[in-house]
Design a binder for these strands. Structure first.
Length: 509
RNA sequence: GAGGCGCUAGCUCAGUCGGUAGAGCAUCUGCCUUUUAAGCAGGUGGCCCCGGGUUCGAGUCCCGGGCGCCUCACCA
């Protein structure tokens, strides 16, 4: 980190020939910086306050003609980064970009005066400037600020990526996301949409009397999901801790507490592979509602997401990687069992006979260890044969109990639970169930998970005695749901990789 | 973790059979007071990702390594 304190330091940087190879342009800009200071111009002042934004100007005055602007001048001031520069010697056009968009400014020596014009001559593409002056329209009818005043607000030393091609190198785009956002407008659009998505969900739940809470990210026990945690250490407490893999068990403690409707939008951390679908830290929405069942959440989800899609995209139909997806409710509902029967030639007895299920799974080419439970075999079969078939929004319901240790048993069939996953483009977008609130049953399920850990399943849920203790005080019948925000954003922004919707995705080094 | 592809100027990219490192944009100098990737003329700029090897000679061929992307496996 280099801190600029004044000319001495700048001279030192110029003289540095070690460590980092600087471009020639970096040195040229440093020389300009020195020239500015020599002329008594502070290159990093903080006393300029823009009166408006580029976007507001173009919006507000878009209808005014050249003649109207000339007859009745409107003076504005904006600040932003110079993104383009067309120089005519004693006059120049610059494109100034701020958070709202961009606007052109005309810098004319006669109008600006010698002193400010000399400052401008030391400005480059990438510098931040403030401009004030009346609006006019050029010969080509472009709304333009005629600079009467101009201030350099921040001198840039490193040159920007090229104006026409932008920054394409994927690695540079992720590592230097600030450049990506600066020069590639469509990237900024994705993150603006991400912000709108999160805000919509937050407002939707708040309007239904939910409260937003924050529960620990550092857990003594990594519970609430089947995943490998990151391990860390608290020095003062002298104890190992885990970055949370899910907030579920804490949120349900709050249901026990009587908060009845809670949600949290926050990061989960899973120490697993990185891919176009997986980042080690990702954002999860979880919400829990007392006196609701998983079927109530099906309705809620259908309403929330379809309204979100309509508001965000202006239509219930969107394209994801050239496939049309129609979010118009109601969405298909199908049980795991029916899905397998529909999309494979399995016979009904694989659901009652584990051996038949094993045989069938092996016939599909699945490598199934002998000790795998019947329910896990069924789940494997489902994922192999059916899951990827659900391109349009589909609720897949009633998963096997062995893969759902926190979910309530189905009243008719104790082999399955009252749970659904929302699948779109063959991928899981949401996972929800009626919560298990029977403390004795919950304890047994944890014990079963412990057995599986002992048999080498490192992702089996850990026993959480305090969570069971909470249930022993009585939890109202409740339904809860998790939605992977990153994947939802991918879907709604037509992004093929999760890295495209995470500002700073995990990279090596 | 396995396989495939990539890494050359600040950015986007060429680089033939192994023979002195190229273009456009940016930058610098000059001209130009309504341009739209402004224009014209002339310049500067390189650890060809790193390290070995083969060769008279390697950006190019071989081996090892780094980083990234894609596919697969695990996972949400």
């Amino acid at each position: 980190m280099i801190i600029f304190k004044g000319p001495d330091v700048e001279q030192k940087i110029l003289e540095q020939k070690t460590v980092e190879q600087r471009s020639g342009e970096f040195e040229q800009r440093l020389e300009k910086l020195k020239g500015l200071r020599a002329a008594g111009v502070e290159p990093y002042p903080n006393d300029f306050k823009p009166g408006t934004t580029a976007g507001a100007v173009s919006g507000e005055f878009s209808s005014l003609s050249k003649e109207e602007l000339a007859a009745n001048p409107r003076t504005v001031s904006v600040a932003g980064r110079i993104m383009a520069h067309r120089d005519f010697g004693k006059a120049s056009f610059v494109r100034i970009q701020d958070r709202s968009g961009s606007i052109q400014a005309y810098i004319k020596k006669d109008i600006l005066g010698d002193a400010a014009f000399n400052v401008f001559r030391l400005c480059d593409v990438g510098d931040i400037i403030g401009v004030e002056g009346p609006l006019f329209r050029t010969r080509t009818d472009e709304l333009t600020i005629e600079a009467k005043n101009l201030r350099l607000l921040s001198k840039g030393l490193s040159p920007l990526p090229e104006k026409w091609h932008g920054l394409k190198d994927v690695e540079a785009r992720y590592r230097q996301r600030y450049l990506d956002l600066m020069v590639n407008p469509e990237v900024k659009d994705v993150f603006l949409k991400r912000s709108r998505i999160v805000r919509f969900i937050r407002e939707f739940l708040v309007s239904r009397d939910y409260i937003e809470v924050e529960t620990p990210m550092l857990h003594p026990i990594a519970g609430g999901a089947a995943a490998k945690p990151f391990k860390t250490r608290h020095n003062a407490l002298d104890m190992d801790m885990y970055m949370r893999i899910a907030p579920e068990l804490y949120l349900k403690r709050l249901i026990v507490a009587g908060l009845e409707r809670v949600f949290e939008i926050n990061r989960n951390f899973r120490n697993e592979g990185v891919s176009t679908q997986h980042n080690p830290e990702f954002t999860m929405l979880e919400f829990y509602e007392a006196y609701a069942t998983f079927e109530d959440l099906i309705n809620l989800t259908e309403e929330m997401i379809s309204k979100l899609v309509l508001e965000l995209c202006g239509s219930m139909k969107i394209a994801y990687q050239r496939t049309e997806i129609d979010f118009t409710p109601p969405w298909t509902r199908i049980s795991v069992k029916d899905a397998i029967l529909k999309y494979s030639n399995a016979s009904g007895d694989i659901f009652t006979n584990k051996e038949k299920a094993m045989q069938f799974a092996q016939g599909l080419g699945l490598q199934i260890p002998k000790e795998l439970s019947h329910g896990k075999v069924i789940t494997e079969i489902f994922e192999k044969t059916a899951e990827h078939m659900f391109i349009q929004p589909t609720f897949c319901t009633h998963y096997p109990i062995e893969v759902s240790p926190l979910a309530r048993k189905n009243a008719q069939n104790p082999e399955i639970v009252d749970r659904f996953e929302l699948l779109v483009m063959g991928k899981e977008i949401a996972n929800a169930f009626s919560e298990l609130n029977d403390p004795v049953d919950q304890k047994e399920r944890f014990l079963k998970q412990q057995e599986e850990r002992a048999h080498g399943d490192l992702e089996a849920h850990e026993m959480d005695e305090d969570y069971v203790r909470a249930l022993e005080y009585g939890m109202p019948p409740t339904a809860g749901q998790g939605i992977g925000i990153d994947r939802l954003v991918m879907l709604l922004t037509d992004s093929p990789s999760i890295r495209d919707v995470i500002l700073f995705p995990a990279l090596r080094r």
